[in-house]
């Protein structure tokens, strides 16, 4: 029985077998076998153990972890179908920006793959495009964001920013629950930072568009601290205060909750709580007085804030049809 031959065979149908197993050598480390001879008698248990580790993790996931991962997966579907619909809308996304949104859409697709693999049979079913109403109308298709996927690129960018910033806050809020499983925690962190990179870029594009600049020209436009919010606002690539409520603070639904407080909003320095993005106290340290010359705006920008699952769901729920069970 040649273990590596078996793995090589599996590789033909699952190219990621080595990712799952970490590496040939580390497989043995997991079983405390490094440096020891593998006897024939040990092999059956060893082999089943290896593949249990690689493919059969879901049985051991706690309900809390499953809930966090399925909320993340739901958000990834929300984002994926939004960007995919935008890319399919004729004339919406300028050619200079198409590569970026293809990259973002593909990243979300990768995240869906990672989360589905982690959840196994406990993953929610693909809700499909039909589950979402990106107009914010919960199925009426005529909510305030309807033009975002038709011909209003500024609104498309605004919705993108709101979705991706919600995602960044949601991963941050879910991370502590993943702590018992270090590999899942690291996977979630590695998705979280990519979402933040997306947000940064979308915000850069928004500054450019508001000033009539596209492509590389967008990066020559400074953020406007007195005009961060609204469809034609010029936000920084990071969240400053509450960004004035974000790209669409005055509509119903509004983007203001994306930057507002969650629940609980306050707590002891060592507790987990969910303040608004304008928060300037971290672990009991007042950032505005702890660094000379810093403004409250910069003190808030330097730290993003997490959001609790219930608040994330209440935001995302506005963009699914009423009959869908997503985000309930």
């Amino acid at each position: 029985m040649d273990l590596f031959k078996i793995i090589t065979e599996i590789e033909k149908v699952d190219p990621e077998i080595y990712d799952r197993l970490d590496s040939r050598r580390r497989v043995f480390k997991h079983f405390g076998l490094a440096g020891k001879a593998v006897t024939a008698a040990m092999l059956p248990g060893l082999v089943s153990g290896i593949f249990q580790r690689a493919y059969g993790q879901t049985a051991s996931l706690s309900p809390d972890i499953v809930a966090v991962l399925n909320l993340a997966l739901s958000l990834e579907y929300l984002e994926y179908y939004f960007y995919d619909s935008g890319l399919k809308a004729t004339g919406l996304i300028p050619s200079a920006d198409r590569p970026a949104f293809e990259t973002i859409r593909n990243d979300e697709s990768g995240h869906i793959k990672v989360l589905r693999e982690a959840l196994g049979s406990q993953a929610i079913a693909d809700p499909t495009r039909a589950a979402f109403d990106y107009s914010g109308g919960r199925g009426s298709m005529v909510g305030p964001f309807a033009a975002a996927l038709v011909n209003d690129y500024a609104l498309f960018l605004g919705s993108s920013q709101a979705f991706v910033d919600t995602g960044v806050r949601a991963y941050k809020g879910g991370a502590p629950i993943l702590m018992p499983n270090k590999d899942l925690l690291e996977a979630a962190l590695n998705i979280h930072s990519v979402e933040a990179r997306h947000s940064s870029h979308v915000r850069t594009v928004r500054r450019g568009l508001a000033a009539g600049q596209s492509g590389q020209g967008a990066t020559t436009i400074a953020g406007d601290p007195s005009n961060l919010s609204g469809k034609t606002g010029r936000p920084k690539s990071w969240i400053s205060g509450t960004d004035g409520g974000g790209p669409s603070p005055g509509t119903t639904p509004s983007t203001a909750p994306v930057y507002g407080a969650g629940n609980p909003a306050t707590g002891a320095p060592t507790a987990i709580f969910f303040p608004a993005e304008s928060n300037t106290t971290q672990a009991g340290v007042d950032i505005t007085t702890n660094t000379a010359g810093i403004t409250p705006a910069a003190a808030s920008e330097a730290f993003d804030e997490p959001l609790d699952a219930a608040t994330v769901k209440s935001i995302a729920r506005n963009f699914v049809v009423a009959s869908s069970a997503l985000f309930t």
Partner: peptide
């Protein structure tokens, strides 16, 4: 709590890196 603090900072670093 420390994990959350690290999370609050890393996404800002990612925003920096992307820009």
């Amino acid at each position: 709590a420390n994990l959350v603090i690290a999370g609050k900072i890393v996404s800002v670093e990612a925003r920096h890196a992307a820009l």
